[in-house]
Write a protein that binds this DNA or RNA. Structure first.
Lengths: 158, 158
DNA sequence: GTCTAAATACTCGGATACCCGCTGTCCGAGTGGTCCGGG
DNA sequence: CCCGGACCACTCGGACAGCGGGTATCCGAGTATTTAGAC
């Protein structure tokens, strides 16, 4: 999995901890975690395309959450960055080679291996969809009660 | 995910459909699904290292299942090929950059994002561990009752 | 003082190289089978 | 006919290239701000 997912997660969480709706530039967001600004910008564009962020150009511009964080699931973030293709790609090798040629029964059904892997994939996605960014935010608050103030000072005080 | 997982799945299932304990060479296994023999051999070595297959060198040699298929889960295969590292890699970016420097609270706890992603990862792994290769084999029998005979003829009749 | 308009600085957005890891290939070490010669 | 040994063919095992996608970077299009000038 690309590390862009981790960057997107923390960036969205940081934006969710700011009260006002003021946009934050990608440079500020990148400086918050020591990330390369240009590449982070590329990932944020994916989040804009997924309608998780809203971008405003020009001075005083930047990115803003497009939806409340309790409506954004971890799956939304993963799909926005990685795409929604399943982890396991079935190349239908069952129909190739000697076995595929000798096969006589119906091959209309989808590959059993693919089905089994797909079930596990769905379990993963459900576990991701069940967790909202707000849940993670609450855990952050419990771990470190001053994290919200820290984030605001890191961005507001710049 | 690397396509070697798919190859390993089908190869193990094919070996499980053979009655006798005669070893099957990687060339035969590869011909069964039209795969490059040398590269499949590389993947099978990983399965040997994971103690899912037993290899016997020399003429009439090849690979044999090291354990009964009802004791091999899909997770075993995935871990053997891909390794058992979690899908989501946490780079601990929360401790980097401006936010990391200004952070005052305890950072002894593991990253909340990492924990959340890990939960989904565990759901995926549990779903994989719950399904044994024998379960997939049963589905294959239902889909195509003649698949076992086909596999035996593909390998035995060579 | 106020309005207008141009210059400006800052932002996103997409196009362009770089690099690591999966993919694919090859050759050597080792072993069981086979064949030949001898007893 | 039976046995022993050397040869051989076939197998796995690890070492060696090639390429695609993620990673990183840069420059151009667009806009709110600012500022200077005219009324």
């Amino acid at each position: 999995m690309s590390k862009g997912v981790e960057w997107a997660m923390h960036t969205l969480l940081n934006l969710g901890m700011l009260e006002d709706g003021e946009p934050v530039s990608s440079a500020q967001l990148a400086a918050g975690h020591g990330l390369p600004a240009a590449y982070l910008n590329k990932q944020l564009q994916l989040l804009v395309k997924a309608e998780l962020l809203t971008s405003t150009p020009g001075p005083r511009g930047g990115f803003t959450l497009a939806r409340p964080i309790d409506s954004i699931s971890l799956l939304d973030v993963v799909v926005a960055i990685e795409g929604n293709e399943p982890i396991f790609r079935c190349a239908e090798i069952r129909r190739c080679g000697k076995i595929g040629e000798l096969s006589t029964g119906n091959t209309s059904t989808t590959c059993a291996v693919k089905r089994a892997m797909y079930r596990a994939d769905m379990a993963w996605r459900e576990a991701l969809a069940k967790q909202k960014l707000s849940d993670v935010q609450n855990e952050l608050d419990i771990d470190n009660p001053s994290v919200r103030r820290t984030v605001r000072r890191a961005f507001g005080g710049a």
